[in-house]
Every structure is written in C-alpha cells, then in structure tokens.
Design a protein around this nucleic acid. Sequence first.
DNA 1: GAGCAGTGGGAATGCGCTTTCCCGCTTTGC
DNA 2: GCAAAGCGGGAAAGCGCATTCCCACTGCTC
Lengths: 364, 364
Amino acid sequence: MAASTLTEVARLAGVSPATASRVLNGSARTPGPDIAERVRKAADSLGYIPNAQAQGLAKSSSGLIGLIVHDIADPYFSAIARGVQTAARHQNKMVLLATTAGSPADERAAVAAFAARRADSIVIAGSRSARTADQLGNAELAAELDRYCRNGGQVGVVGHAVVGAESDEGYHVVEVPNEELAAELARELAASHAGEFVIIAGPEGLLTSDDRVRGFQRGLADAGFSPADVLHTGFDRTGGYEAGLELAARIGAHGGNGEGGTEAAAPPRLCIFAVNDVMAIGATAALRSKGLRVPRDAAIAGFDDIETLRDFRPALSTVRLPLEEIGRLAVPAGSGHAAAGTVGVKGEVTLRRSTERAGEPASS
Amino acid sequence: MAASTLTEVARLAGVSPATASRVLNGSARTPGPDIAERVRKAADSLGYIPNAQAQGLAKSSSGLIGLIVHDIADPYFSAIARGVQTAARHQNKMVLLATTAGSPADERAAVAAFAARRADSIVIAGSRSARTADQLGNAELAAELDRYCRNGGQVGVVGHAVVGAESDEGYHVVEVPNEELAAELARELAASHAGEFVIIAGPEGLLTSDDRVRGFQRGLADAGFSPADVLHTGFDRTGGYEAGLELAARIGAHGGNGEGGTEAAAPPRLCIFAVNDVMAIGATAALRSKGLRVPRDAAIAGFDDIETLRDFRPALSTVRLPLEEIGRLAVPAGSGHAAAGTVGVKGEVTLRRSTERAGEPASS
DNA sequence: GAGCAGTGGGAATGCGCTTTCCCGCTTTGC
DNA sequence: GCAAAGCGGGAAAGCGCATTCCCACTGCTC
C-alpha cells in the first residue's frame, strides 16, 4: 500500500539498492545498459516515486525555493511569484510559499520554517520596514537570515538589502530604482502641471513607499516645485480610498467642478501621486464617489503598472516595473557559485490618460 | 557551521537524543521539568532548528500542502491561493506551489512531485479539461492522483470531481454552482434586455467554461430566448480581447453608434456574457478600442467578481464567487478522518453598471 | 520487607536514500 | 606474461530524527 521504495525496486530487479539508486537518478557512475534497463522496468512496474525527503536528507539539499510575500492575492506579489515560479522550474525546484502581511516576526518564522526544510534558497519579496516598532523584529529576521546563509543558504531580496544583515555572504539583491523612477515621474508630470502636488504614501517607514516619496519630492524639486504634501495611509486599495476621500474634500473646498460642470478645468488642478497602482485605483474610486472626475478634476498617477489594471479607465499613468522579471532575477542562481551580488532592473515612466491635461480629448 | 542537530543539543544538555527529541516537540512522554529546561536552553543556545526532512522521514508526513494552479498571477487563482494559504496556516503547514498552465501532463508531474515530497494533501484549483486531446493526459493525471490517495494522500478539488478518478477515497471537492449561477445571471439579464445575446467562452472542453455556457443558455431558454451565439477563445484577457474585436465588427455592421453619436441607443443592443471577468475586461477594452461604449453600445457581464477589478468602470456585472473561501474549503481537513465528501459554496449574481439599460443615467 | 506497578531516562532500530569504500573482474602497458 | 590500472557491482555507513523497547529506580500494597 505504502509507496514502494528503492529497495523494493532493487530487489525486483535483482540488484543492490546502490545500483538502483545509480540508475534512477543521474549519478556519476552509470551502470551497464542491460542492468539499467532492468531497474527502470522494475521501477515503473512498481510505480516507484523516490522519496524526496529521504533524498534530501541524504544529499542535504531539498530542491525547494522559499518565497516570502506580504499577500499572494496582491497583484504586485502574484506577478513576482509568477517570475519566481518560472525560475524555479528552470532549476527544477519547487516553490514553497509563505505570506506574512509584512510582519517581521512572521517573516522570521517563515525563514526558520524554510531553513528547517533545508530550502536551497529563499526569496523575500515584501518591502522591508524601518519603523521603530519593527526594529526588534527586523533584527531577529536579519539574524535568522544570517544564520541561514551561514549554513549555506542563498537569499534573494527584491528592493533593498535586508536591514541589518551582517555579511553579504549569500545575499543577492534585485535593485529596483524606486527613487530614480519616482523622480523621473515627478519631473515629467511637473512639465505639464501647474497645480499643487500631493502624495498618497504607505505607512511611514515602509522602505518602498519612502523611496518613492523621496524620489518624487526630489523630482519636484528638480523641476522647481516645492515639496508635496504627503498623506500616510495603508499600502493597499483601502488606504488609497481613504486618502482619496480626504483629497476629495480638499478639492471640493477650493475649486473642484461639480458633477454637471462643463466649464474648462480650473488651472490649479491637483496632481496626485499614489505610491502604487492599487492605491491609485482606490483613490480614484474615492474621488469618483464624490462626483469628481479624473483627469478633469485631478490628475493621478500610480506606480508598478499592474497588468490587471491596464484596462482601467482612465488609463493610469504609472511607472512600469518588470515584475515578473524581478521575480525571476530574485531567485539565486541554482547550485553554482554563491552568486552574491546585486542586479538592477529598469522601469519606465508611462504617462497615460489619468494625468493628461484636462482639456485634451481622450485619445482612446 | 552546518545547522546543529538534535544529537548535539542532547550532548550539550547532557541527555540522550531520545530525551531531547521528547522535549523539543510535543511527545506523549514529557521529561521532567528540570531536564526539559536544560534541553531547551541548550537548544536555543545552539540555535537549533529541527530538520523537517528528517522529521518527515521518521514520521512519514511532511506538513506540506501542494497547490496546483494554472497561473499564480491570474487574480482568480491568486485569490484562491490566499484562501489555501490561510487554511494551511491554521493547520500549521506550508504550501508548495505548482503552476501548470492547465496542461494535464504538467499537472500529473506536479502531483508526482508532491507525492515524492509526501505532501499531506494536494489542492487542485485549475479547471479540468475534457478535450479529447487531453484525454490521455487526464487519465494519467487521474491514475497518479488515485495512487497518491491510495498511499494515504488527501486531495481537494475545486469545481468538479477529477475526471476519471476511480474511487472517492480521499477526494474532497468544493462544488461551485457555475451552471446554476450562470443560468440565474442569464435570467436576470434577460429580464431587462431585448437584444441579442452572445457568449464569449473559453476553449471548448474546459469544464468551467462549458458549465457556465450551458447554464447561461439554459437561463436564456427559461426566459424564452433562443440560444446565444458562442465564441470560443482563450480563457484569459487576450482571448476576451480578440472576441471583443470580432463582436465590435458585428456591432458596427448592424447598428452601433459611432464615436460622437448622441442618439438614443438602438433597441437591439447586444448583450455579451464573458465566462470570466478577465475576459470580460478584455472584451470591453476591445470594444472601446473600436469606439464603442459600454453599456451604451453593448451590455457586458463577466463571472467571478475579481476583487482587483471591482473599481473598473463601467462597473462590471458579474457573479460573485467567494474565491478565498473556496480556497480555504478546498484544503482537506488536517489529520482527522478522511474528509472525503463534497462541500458547496454560494455565489451571487451582481448586476452593475455594465449591463444597465442604455438610457439610464450613470448611478456612480 | 518482598513483590508490584509505575515512571523517567537511555540504547537501539529504522524511515528511504546517497555515497564511500571495497572487491573481483577485465583490460591495458611494458 | 605479469603487475597495475580501470571498471562494474555490492556492502555498509550514515543523513537527523521518532519511537519502541528495555532498564533502573521509586513508591506502593499486603
């Protein structure tokens, strides 16, 4: 009843387990063709499936790649996950998933669990947090990761290096030029907007959010604008929605056009930068719920260029990030050299309808 | 350097490995408190992490749940994955991910890989296919699953029972009333639409798609309509887009309103049912690219109620499926009784702007 | 005070596989 | 023709842990 073992196969084939093992997986030594044939036949007559746990134990490596995300249902993460999955398949490994909602404590636990399973490498996709409340958690996470690396594990990080990692040994980071891209976005927007800018950011301390905010402000400064107001809120759709509600009130207060208004847009139109697309969509929904229109009453831009959101109307201006590629790059190279190092990816500012000048006709 | 072992901990604590094992995980026998304390202290002074592979080998169970999806980046699957992940966490297990693009051969391979890792249970989320081209693959998949079950594995399936499974032993299916819901959707739409109906379906043979098509046709019949045309295309956004293009041509041919037209909508407006939301979005984009407007020139409805798409405008009429719950329910109950059986979930027809009567004002 | 169950701990076995080591054989080199 | 090298195969030793079995010892009962 229980799955058949190598030993059974060997017995059936009339050879030793050692030989059977040698034929059933690429060993350095290849038994004679006749024997190999016999073993192979025995194996599939028995429906033999090697026990990966035992193999792992013996070889001390598991063919597993651990992936840590905040939330697998978030399109940002699921796009990255797809890339990781692709890379894993190329290394013929499987991916182990852990979701942590960004809590360092959970992430530490996930790393420990991956270590326990002897995962060959770990990919951490979620943004790190620098909040003081998370400081202890971050330190513990870093310690856990360091230990994992010292034991020969490889870790891939997307975004920034892990806060507080001791050595570079075994770390592999995919750098996302969040700050530069946000700056570029700001400059491009500044070129055609005279009005006020405002930023909808994630919680203070979330590195990805902070970087994007900083970059955007810098870009604004480059273009001769004064710093934008920053609204800190949740890093998700709900956060965007709430911030959007607040902004709607503001707009309404000094000069939004009412529902039916057909007059030309008031010149000092607000330009909103939400630090990610999902938040931008939330904000847009909030504005709409208050009768405001994008881009007529406010321009809005996001970040990430989430695929599922590309058909959204008005088409969202954003920064395209090669999410899937990021995922692919984040998984450390298979067995070879400890590919510690940093690889960068390129993004691209993508202006679309949501930030067009108010008067222009819809192009599509 | 290599991670420390139970034996080392035991030696440091001055006890036998057996004792150390007993204290470091809930065994039936609990050593004395003083000894336990000593062991525990030794364990974390060494940073001991149990080797899950070895534990698994010894106990022959792994704490792993295998999840098979077509594509983790598809919001339908990532929502389900979130549910699975939640359930896994409650059983404190980890989830192993496999993506197969719906190919039965890949799915068979994934099942084998899960079996090799001695996954405690396997969840298959992707729709099964009944295409004749897949017949052989399906049979092999079924055989692999049966073998897995016979060896004590539990499998959870969302949608329909696996095609060709021999026994019910170990199977656990979450039934999604695709057909009924599609019928209900059709009836509700029929109540307010006089025009022609057309269905954008997935590839012929894809069970989920077929069910929804069948249901929709039945609903139409119930309402006294003749069967709708069915366009078979890809089950994804691109498929929807292509079908949309074709429909745009059709509409243009007999009476769509041009871009600038302000005349009241022609009464025999087309009503499109796309078998999932992502396709519906694709189709909408295609119509739009041809200057057609929804719901003015065509009504359109989807299926699934994907969360990320809820802010889409015009708000998409669809059938809400509790995706995350489906994921949660699909994972077989932990250790207990072989919970073979079927559990159903409820969906809800959700009519929104995209199928409103053409003349009505936008409500939001 | 002898026999008993009960208790807390250790020795040893095995989970299924890989891999080193060894052994007998054939092939090569001089 | 003989030693040395090469090769194909098997025996056996782990990999790190759980667990069964066993043993020494305590605390009882009669």
